[in-house]
Design a protein around this nucleic acid. Structure first.
Length: 271
DNA sequence: AAAAGCCCCTGGATGC
DNA sequence: TGCATCCAGGGGCTTT
């Protein structure tokens, strides 16, 4: 569900409010993707230092250890001092002195995992292979281009894989490639330098813009206060199969790449 | 090493 | 209205 912008908007929505809180209790509902990996009661009494993001993971730093949270396809977080009794899909509550952080995740592809530190085997397994952060200063073009050159797979799938650059999900991959004028099937290794420059800028711009708009093209994304982000940012090609391209009016095409839908304009993205 | 498939799970939309 | 089918924002794991 959530791509980088939604995860970042989620983080900003509660990071300052939860920092400095003390954990009072932890409630675990139905199993998520992985087990919490700590006895819930063992977290009571610990302090919350802050919340960082790495790719689509949220890292909740405690005064001892940290929680890795992932929203999967259908997860969302709420943070409030007065939440109703947990519903069917509320599978994790972190009850703190400042409020309760609650994960709602119908499909349960998400996860909350405790690790002692980022060097732990589990943290390394999950975070170790992640690529560059697209927002901020670390998104170096030369490294990006070098990353593309060593991959022969279609550029759409290289963007999605997250080992060159993180945070680009299925919607924003199509959107960024449209913005850059690049055909999603083009082998990443065959992208010329000028076009790689356009893609580098497109990835950054599309994600930054979505963060600014407060989250997204996603129909059922809601922020930590429970407000919906219903089509705050209109998709240019994603989900618009058969509809006219906003630039040239040619019908947008849909195809499948690795079991995921890809949308593109055959004219604006010739190769 | 890289690439391609396979799953995990639930709910909503669509079609008969 | 009822039921079957398809599809969905992710990504780790297994197999080529």
């Amino acid at each position: 569900m959530p791509e980088l912008p939604e995860v970042e908007v989620t983080r900003r929505g509660f990071a300052d409010r939860i920092a400095g809180a003390r954990i009072e209790s932890v409630r675990v509902g139905k199993p998520l993707r992985w087990a919490l990996a700590v006895e819930p009661g063992a977290l009571a009494g610990r302090g919350v230092l802050g919340v960082r993001r790495r790719g689509k993971y949220l890292l909740v730093d405690l005064d001892a250890g940290l929680l890795l949270m992932h929203l999967g396809m259908s997860g969302s977080l709420r943070f409030d001092t007065a939440l109703p009794a947990p519903g069917t899909h509320d599978h994790f509550d972190l009850v703190t002195s400042r409020g309760t952080l609650r994960l709602n995740d119908p499909r349960r592809f998400g996860a909350v995992v405790y690790v002692e530190d980022e060097a732990s085997p589990l943290a390394r397994k999950l975070l170790g292979g992640l690529g560059m952060e697209p927002l901020g200063d670390g998104f170096d073009f030369e490294a990006f281009h070098a990353g593309l050159r060593r991959r022969r797979a279609p550029i759409k799938q290289v963007l999605l894989a997250g080992d060159v650059v993180v945070g680009v999900g299925n919607i924003y991959a199509s959107e960024a490639l449209f913005l850059a004028g690049i055909r999603p099937t083009l082998s990443a290794a065959r992208i010329s330098r000028p076009r790689a420059l356009r893609l580098h800028a497109a990835v950054r711009d599309i994600l930054a813009r979505a963060v600014e708009r407060g989250g997204s093209t996603l129909r059922d994304f809601s922020n930590v206060d429970g407000q919906s982000g219903y089509f705050q940012l209109e998709a240019t090609v994603y989900g618009r199969k058969g509809e006219p391209c906003r630039v040239c009016a040619t019908p947008v095409r849909m195809m499948r790449q690795g079991q995921r839908a890809t949308y593109f304009c055959p004219v604006c993205q010739k190769h």
